[in-house]
Design a protein around this nucleic acid. Structure first.
Lengths: 205, 205
DNA sequence: GGCAAAGATGAGGGATTCCTCATCTTTGTG
DNA sequence: CACAAAGATGAGGAATCCCTCATCTTTGCC
């Protein structure tokens, strides 16, 4: 019942293992993109990383932990992006802000297809899904904070839900619209319209 | 490159095998709900169905084909629901129509959690995802037809994209909001608002 | 220099799953 | 009734994967 969070068994403290840890993650990312989560095996990760299998298991119990960690890394990156965009809010009207934000996110997804691969992977099993849900919720909490000045009359409660819906919709639409290394720009445009009309209607609530 | 569609190896013609085919699908559905797609094996399906493994392989090459078939069955059911709702359009304003439709879909998802399990399963691998995308596109085409009278000024092209976005968003939100056999009604409400504002903005375009 | 803690290693036992195919049974038809 | 086509069956070969654990090496610090 408790939402078991999938975490690495051990995080490196020394420099030496830190490099190996990061390398394993990077190789995992590539492999995930190449073969998909079903065919993703710990053995192959170790092979490609040219590290013994035992080293991998020092850090990661299994492949589920690996993709959850990758998902966490990606979420942190998105939150940083959000932060840096926050500075732009005062100087732009928020429709323009939204436009740029979506474009920027789309560019990230196009530029690094492994994000989609990671997202799809964590959706694949109950355990990883639960962990990813927590990560997603944290991101949503951040988004809720951004929403506050835009929708001052909306109750805090509702804003939380709104942010969760927004994050979920944006993620699934990005991963729907951007495949095979190219963006399907018509649906990105519709995504913008969808978000804009939703936020607009909330603003007027 | 060609979008390989995953189809049963053989569909039954005789009564005898027809029953077995359907029984295998029903058992698969239950098993999927119980253990998830990762732990879903053809052997276990055959065991639970109390049919020899060879019989299963007569119809289905592998488990991927099974879940794609289940997904197809579910999509057909949704299309029938849509059909039956079509009759209500003239007698209701469409906001009310939307409201009822979403409620009805939500009730379906709550009443039969296997729909979510099937949806999640087909998203898990490249091959099933591709097949499910085709199924989803067919459903979207149907939705586009419903949209026509509501948004007469929207170009046909855009309506097609809109329908695809709508279908994708509704599916992912339903499967996000309805878990563990219960509906998280706040996010369902937000889904309605999201759809309503989007459609409204299109109507006025 | 030397000791404890941290890190590294990879062979191999155990457990599954996949899926065919050679053979047997049932059905339907002339 | 007899024959061909369709259907049913399940033993078993081949292929992976998972992941531990006993042992060895490196690092950091006094």
């Amino acid at each position: 019942m408790t939402a078991e969070i999938l975490e690495p068994r051990r995080r490196p403290t020394q420099e030496r293992s830190h490099r190996k840890f990061d390398h394993l993650l990077q190789v995992s990312r590539d492999l995930l993109l190449d073969v998909g989560f079903e065919s993703f095996t710990c053995e192959e990760v170790a092979n490609r990383a040219e590290l013994p299998i035992g080293t991998l298991y020092q850090f990661f119990q299994n492949k589920y932990v690996i993709v959850c960690e990758l998902d966490r890394v990606d979420a942190v990156a998105v939150r940083l992006e959000l932060q840096s965009f926050a500075d732009a809010i005062p100087t732009l009207d928020w429709l323009k802000f939204l436009d740029r934000l979506v474009d920027h996110m789309a560019a990230l997804w196009v530029g690094d297809p492994s994000r989609r691969a990671v997202w799809l992977a964590v959706q694949s099993t109950p355990a990883t899904r639960a962990t990813a849900a927590v990560t997603e919720k944290e991101l949503a909490a951040e988004v809720a904070r951004f929403l506050a000045p835009l929708t001052p009359d909306t109750p805090r409660e509702r804003r939380t839900i709104m942010a969760e819906v927004l994050v979920h919709v944006v993620y699934s639409m990005l991963n729907f619209s951007i495949r095979d290394g190219q963006e399907h720009s018509e649906s990105i445009i519709e995504l913008k319209r969808l978000l804009a009309s939703y936020l607009l209607s909330a603003e007027r609530s």
